[in-house]
């Protein structure tokens, strides 16, 4: 039976482990054992279980779907090569996020050196994709929704890399502070103060329009 990783993993850490979370932990143990035996089917399952979250992190960090697709592939190829190094002292998803974070930051440095990178604006969204994302019967409503999302994504893209990473991990991926500390290798106090600065900067960038949009 497929278990929704994103839903379970976004639950607060202080909540008692649910039946589904226990199932996930057991399935993960088995998956790790199979991965260590270089079982290709297990690796395919690992990719399928985590690809959406890894890709989402890459898109948010790089603000470019093409780059994100390439980096997400590199993340999984690196994971495959490093399977023997996974000691199991953190959750598999935490380890995967850590590898993904390193790849994203490295790619950003590389792109920075090459002065590349583009804003993935509404105009870049193909019409078919826009229709796919329509949220209501009214196309104009859907367009406004897409415009708003593009505005928020553009605001996130303006943050410094380290701050953007924290916003993505906490406010989009819904990870716990314990997990974020393991991924970023920064003390919890630093994580919280940087995240606060990032959120304050976003509020500043998005300005009062966003508040009106919510009402």
């Amino acid at each position: 039976m497929a278990v929704d990783v994103a839903t379970i993993e976004s639950q607060p850490a202080r909540a008692a482990p649910s039946e589904a979370a226990q199932q996930l932990a057991l399935r993960e143990r088995l998956l790790i054992a199979r991965l260590r035996r270089r079982d290709e089917r297990a690796f395919t399952e690992l990719v399928r279980l985590h690809q959406d979250r890894v890709y989402d992190l890459c898109v948010r960090m790089l603000n470019d779907r093409e780059e994100a697709f390439d980096v997400a592939q590199e993340v999984f190829v690196s994971l495959h090569a490093a399977l023997g190094q996974f000691r199991g002292d953190s959750r598999l998803s935490t380890w995967i996020f850590k590898v993904a974070k390193n790849h994203c930051l490295n790619r950003l440095k590389y792109l920075g050196r090459r002065q590349r990178g583009r804003t993935d604006e509404l105009s870049d969204v193909p019409e078919g994709e826009l229709a796919e994302h329509q949220q209501g019967p009214n196309p104009q409503e859907a367009l406004l929704g897409k415009e708003q999302q593009a505005r928020v994504q553009a605001a996130i893209a303006r943050l410094p890399d380290e701050q953007r990473l924290l916003v993505v991990l906490r406010d989009i991926e819904g990870l716990t502070y314990d997990e974020i500390v393991q991924i970023t290798e920064q003390p919890e106090g630093t994580v919280k103060s940087r995240l606060h600065r990032a959120r304050a900067a976003l509020a500043e960038i998005l300005g009062p329009n966003d508040q009106e949009g919510r009402r």
Partner: peptide, 14 residues
């Protein structure tokens, strides 16, 4: 409001 807007961003599917 801006935090809500970030949290409501739809996830990108691979």
């Amino acid at each position: 409001a801006s935090l809500d807007a970030v949290r409501q961003l739809p996830r990108e599917r691979a």
